[in-house]
């Protein structure tokens, strides 16, 4: 009998989890349980399937055509002249015909004074990054001052506004500089927020929340 009650409890909790009704702390604790308990994971999957029916019923709206191109450029760097230019420069600089993967898009621009800056550093300063945000173009530039990304792993940058759960700003590139376009919804949250870098599997956190160790952190202050 009490087993049945527990089961019902878990089933309702799994529904609350999928609906995202739990506070951050409970949500994280439950996510840990889901990862460890296959039966609970099945309940969560069932709710996702059931409730997706609500989304299926929402009318479709065609997104503006430019989004498709923006996405392709963002993901694949297709037709980006900056990338090929940078690639050429690199090839010129690399004397031996070593295999070089270029992940970094370097934007050549006249520097404007950033509105917000942060030093994101590990306690032992084995990893030090400098972040600068300019309101003009809503871009966050992260310079890698010290430390690399571990082989086969990724470093994900998180924005943590006071009292809020971390929101991913994206993956850091292995090179000297990462450029991140800050989504409109997050811009008001930047000043005074903490920036943190976590160690994640290649491709980034699978859950949307940090899953690995926090490698470095810093606070955004006026530039």
């Amino acid at each position: 009998m009490s087993d049945a009650v527990d089961r019902d409890d878990d089933r309702a909790l799994a529904g609350e989890f999928v609906l995202r009704l739990m506070d951050d702390e409970m949500h994280r604790a439950f996510a840990a349980r889901v990862a460890a308990e296959p039966e609970l994971a099945r309940m969560v999957r069932d709710w996702e399937e059931d409730l997706a029916g609500l989304a299926e019923a929402v009318p479709e709206v065609a997104p503006p055509p430019r989004i498709r191109q923006q996405l392709r450029t963002r993901l694949f760097g297709a037709d980006s002249p900056r990338r090929s230019w940078f690639g050429l420069r690199l090839w010129g600089a690399v004397a031996a015909a070593a295999l070089v993967a270029v992940f970094v898009l370097v934007q050549v621009q006249t520097p404007t004074a950033p509105d917000l800056v942060a030093e994101i550093a590990a306690e032992d300063r084995g990893l030090v990054l400098r972040a600068a945000y300019s309101e003009d173009n809503a871009r966050l530039t992260v310079d890698r001052v010290a430390g690399d990304i571990r082989e086969g792993r990724a470093q994900e940058l998180w924005l943590i506004a006071e009292g809020a759960a971390p929101v991913s700003l994206g993956l850091l590139t292995p090179g000297a500089m990462s450029q991140i376009a800050v989504p409109a919804g997050l811009r008001p949250a930047l000043a005074g927020a903490t920036l943190a870098v976590s160690d994640e599997p290649a491709g980034g956190s699978p859950t949307g929340q940090p899953t690995g160790a926090v490698l470095a952190a810093g606070v955004f202050v006026s530039g």
Binding site: A55, V58, P59, E60, V61, A62, P63, I67
Partner: peptide, 8 residues
């Protein structure tokens, strides 16, 4: 799926 997901 873009239109479905954009609607959402």
């Amino acid at each position: 799926t873009g239109a479905k997901l954009f609607g959402l």
